[in-house]
């Protein structure tokens, strides 16, 4: 299994714990950054990089689940591997539901950790790719004229050309022309593809 690129953030309130985990991950050739406080982590983590977070559930400032909620709210979609001393089932379920990638019980074995980190970075990579595709589509969308965007909203909502022309107070021939321009600008070949792209970009219903 190839090692995906990316950085591993380790956050635990205990310096010795952070140190040990960091050593281990570095020995396994991961680029690792250690933090003992949530504040320091939030200041340092970069959205540009492909990254995952190894997080202790029990910390005095902010517990792991709260931090997870906070990150989601901020739109920081970083995969999280939770470490817990005594992982009880309700807590793990909540964490997983909230998007945790993995839930490991201390003391954690190196192989299990490495595997979890790899998986998390893979997820991060996938998410990054999806995000960059969406960003390209968004750029295409931005190149449409206001009239073209108007027409596209009606079309992806499933209206026929005749209905759209009536609603916008123009001829059916005009709408057909707009459609050809839109599909070219959005880089799609069929109406079905256009509807899927619109959905991804959150246009229409």
């Amino acid at each position: 299994m190839s090692t995906p690129g990316g950085v591993v953030y380790v956050l635990d309130d205990e310096p010795e714990m952070v140190k040990a985990l960091t050593r281990l991950l570095r020995a396994k050739r991961f680029e690792t950054f250690a933090f003992t406080s949530v504040r320091a982590f939030l200041d340092a983590c970069s959205l540009e990089k492909n990254a995952c977070l190894v997080l202790d559930v029990a910390m005095p400032e902010l517990n792991g689940l709260e931090l997870q909620r906070h990150l989601t709210y901020q739109g920081i979609l970083i995969p999280i591997i939770f470490l817990t001393g005594h992982g009880d089932i309700p807590m793990s379920v909540r964490a997983i539901k909230a998007g945790a990638t993995e839930f490991l019980t201390k003391p954690v074995d190196a192989d299990a950790l490495v595997q979890a980190v790899r998986a998390a970075l893979q997820i991060a990579e996938t998410r990054r790719q999806a995000a960059s595709e969406t960003a390209a589509l968004a750029a295409r969308l931005a190149s449409l004229t206001p009239r073209q965007l108007e027409v596209m909203k009606h079309i992806v909502a499933g209206q026929l050309n005749k209905q759209v022309a009536f609603d916008l107070g123009t001829g059916e021939q005009n709408i057909k022309l707009h459609c050809a321009h839109i599909m070219r600008k959005m880089g799609v070949d069929s109406l079905a593809d256009l509807v899927r792209v619109a959905e991804r970009l959150g246009i229409g219903k």
Binding site: R23, A27, G85, H86, K106, P107
Partner: peptide, 25 residues
């Protein structure tokens, strides 16, 4: 016991991770 498990797990985890890192090194 939960707390104690944590209290004991913490050093044990540190030991394990360190030891496995050392093996690699």
């Amino acid at each position: 016991s939960g707390s104690l498990a944590h209290e004991l797990n913490q050093p044990l985890s540190i030991i394990l991770s360190n030891a496995q890192a050392a093996q690699d090194l």
